[in-house]
């Protein structure tokens, strides 16, 4: 190893960028060569002094001063994560309200029909008055459907009965269903759907 190589390697030692065999060779060269040893010691003094240059402290209160100047962070979050609370509340409300609604619907006689407004309710009797025509389908739950006028659509009864008056007529399909949970649920959902439609269209 000549001195030029050795001096280059001395720099590599400072950066831990040297193989073990090369390091051994360098060490044996250094033992034999005093001028390279001088280079080594001046490099050591240099790096020690350079490290001292980094020993400077920032003025006190620096961190606090930086923190005071911070702008609010722009966070990129989705609409749903920002509205997480609102969404959760709405979902909880739906979860709680649906069974309450279903239960209250099923505890009293119900009639679901497209032409609901022509049908008159008296207690648990739903009356299609004389001269009126119900064109759409009718679902009746718990109660009596009294037909004095005309029902053209199909009728589905759940736990209900039908009385047809002397001038009354029914030309559609009639289906009688016992009050199974499934049928009850169908009634409740139909009623719920009617209410939602009313809400959306603004009809009563």
């Amino acid at each position: 190893m000549n001195c030029q190589d050795a001096r280059r390697l001395l720099h590599h030692v400072l950066d831990d960028d040297i193989t073990l065999p090369a390091k051994r060779q360098l060490e044996s060269h250094l033992q034999a060569c005093s001028s390279c040893r001088n280079v080594e010691s001046s490099l050591d003094r240099l790096t020690t002094a350079l490290e001292q240059l980094a020993d400077v402290s920032v003025p006190q209160g620096f961190t606090a001063h930086v923190m005071q100047q911070l702008q609010p962070v722009r966070t990129y979050t989705s609409f749903f994560s920002r509205m997480r609370g609102v969404c959760a509340a709405a979902l909880l409300f739906l979860l709680l309200a649906t069974p309450v609604f279903v239960w209250s619907t099923l505890s009293s006689p119900q009639l679901v029909a497209d032409d609901r407004q022509v049908i008159v309710q008296e207690g648990n009797r739903f009356i299609v008055p004389y001269g009126e025509v119900v064109k759409g389908d009718v679902i009746i739950y718990k109660g009596i459907l009294e037909i004095q006028g005309e029902v053209q659509g199909s009728i589905k009864t759940v736990d209900a009965s039908i009385e047809v008056g002397p001038n009354g007529s029914h030309s559609g399909v009639l289906r009688r269903v016992d009050a199974s949970p499934k049928a009850k649920l169908a009634v409740a959902l139909a009623e719920l759907w009617e209410n939602v439609k009313c809400l959306l269209t603004g009809n009563d």
Binding site: V56, V58, F62, M67, L70
Partner: peptide, 21 residues
């Protein structure tokens, strides 16, 4: 923000020293 302040605290001296030089 406290976590950020910790980073400023940790590197404040070094960054200042570097920039000073």
């Amino acid at each position: 923000q406290a976590a950020f302040a910790e980073l400023v605290d940790k590197y404040g001296d070094k960054i200042y020293a570097y920039l000073y030089r």
